[in-house]
Amino acid sequence: MSTARRATAMAALVLGACWATRAAHAEDTITLMVGGIDKIIYLPAILAKQLGYFEQPGLDVNVVTEPAGVNAEDELIAGAVQGVVGFYDHTIDLQSKGTEVESLVQFASAPGEVELVAAAHAADIKTPADFKGKSLGVTGLGSSTDFLTQYMAKKFGLNRSDYHLLPVDADMTFINAMRAHRIVAGMTTEPTASELLSTGEAKVLIDLRTEAGTREALGGHYPAGCLYMRAAWVNAHADAARKLTHAFVRALQYIHTHSAEQIVAQLPRSYYEKRKALYVHALKAYQFTFSVDGRMPADGPRTVLTVMSAIDPSVKATDIDLSKTYTTAYLDDAEK
């Protein structure tokens, strides 16, 4: 073989080895998509990443964001990501469509959402019955804020055609939509809610940031933020699933053993920018709503199913196997 041909062959071998290494690394990397990474309700995801809880047991975890949880769900189904940090209700929604996903760890027993009304319309909108003819903000169509808004409107006698839902994501896009009068009310999370409340631009209509408010509005505990993954992936990667679960539980425990100021100090500056005091204030209000152990509240799945089946004809309560929408196997292992 000539020197030139030998050099070409060697280059091909080296290039092939590089591509093989990259492919192997890609297969080993677990990508988690968060439905709005700077939302306080999903704090355990970035906290586990920042504190090294994924890396310490040997996991290579990439945490990415997508403002609307419904889009993160789509990425999971497409196989672009291995897990989603989003609302538990998507596990029920997807099972009704023939796809089995399960929650591995629950973050809280209250959604952490709040229905805000623009201050200029607060006198006209006293209950969801007053949504008729109005434009309401949600993070995305088919999102959990969409589900909850529809349920509350129906509970007060409205049909879906009686109001308009406008997808406005969260944070500044939500705030700007309210300031520009594109929406008169909307459902959002912290710290977006505190931003509008602190300036007096909005008032609280329904508060789902506490267990008491959630029980009053929805009839029971409403497990929301969680890590959910395709059941097939979990079954094929039990060790990785166990390590992920343990990492999130450690993050939850950190939240309960540190001050809001200490927690915020661990976050990227981009989370709060010039609103650090506001972020700390909002976290203090929600901090102890987070679960200590990541377990599913006993009445939670049934409450969520009641909400979902009330607004979506395709979600038939008799056809949903709630035992397949979450698992405690890796939580049990963590306690052992």
Score class of each variant (00 low, 15 high):
229 M>G: 04
16 G>R: 06
77 I>C: 10
2 S>M: 07
212 A>D: 14
121 H>I: 08
116 L>H: 02
223 P>S: 06
299 D>I: 01
235 N>G: 12
70 V>I: 10
227 L>P: 00
315 V>M: 02
60 D>P: 02
155 K>D: 07
227 L>R: 00
247 A>E: 08
127 T>H: 10
9 A>H: 04
265 A>C: 11
96 S>N: 12
191 P>I: 02
21 T>P: 06
57 P>F: 03
142 G>P: 07
315 V>I: 11
126 K>P: 09
137 G>D: 12
59 L>S: 03
202 A>G: 14
259 S>I: 05
166 L>F: 02
118 A>H: 10
240 A>R: 07
104 L>E: 08
126 K>M: 11
248 F>A: 09
169 D>S: 13
41 I>S: 15
110 A>F: 10
184 V>Y: 07
92 I>F: 03
158 L>D: 07
273 E>R: 03
169 D>G: 10
211 E>A: 09
234 V>R: 00
323 S>T: 04
296 M>C: 12
136 L>C: 06
106 Q>K: 08
279 Y>A: 02
84 V>G: 03
79 G>P: 05
113 E>R: 00
266 Q>F: 10
71 N>Q: 15
311 I>N: 02
217 A>R: 04
282 A>D: 10
4 A>Y: 00
75 E>D: 11
181 H>R: 15
158 L>K: 01
142 G>N: 07
159 N>E: 08
122 A>G: 01
69 G>V: 01
240 A>L: 06
186 G>P: 04
158 L>N: 03
90 H>E: 09
264 V>W: 13
155 K>W: 01
302 R>M: 10
286 Y>D: 03
16 G>L: 04
191 P>Y: 05
255 I>R: 07
259 S>R: 02
243 K>C: 09
97 K>H: 11
260 A>Y: 03
329 A>E: 13
194 S>Q: 10
264 V>L: 15
316 K>P: 09
248 F>I: 09
295 R>Q: 12
310 A>N: 04
114 V>E: 00
295 R>K: 14
277 A>V: 05
288 F>M: 10
308 M>Q: 07
194 S>G: 09
64 V>T: 14
21 T>K: 14
117 V>W: 00
292 V>G: 13
69 G>M: 06
333 D>T: 08
262 Q>E: 14
308 M>D: 13
170 A>M: 13
168 V>F: 01
134 K>L: 06
216 E>A: 15
142 G>T: 07
70 V>P: 12
51 L>I: 02
16 G>H: 09
61 V>A: 07
14 V>E: 15
215 R>L: 04
299 D>C: 04
14 V>D: 11
36 G>F: 12
272 Y>C: 08
243 K>T: 00
202 A>D: 09
128 P>S: 06
125 I>E: 08
191 P>L: 05
177 A>H: 05
54 F>A: 01
293 D>F: 01
181 H>S: 14
237 H>C: 11
95 Q>I: 02
163 Y>M: 12
13 L>H: 09
332 D>A: 06
17 A>W: 11
230 R>Q: 12
91 T>K: 05
47 L>C: 07
226 C>E: 12
272 Y>H: 13
281 H>K: 15
66 E>Y: 04
333 D>R: 11
309 S>V: 09
184 V>L: 11
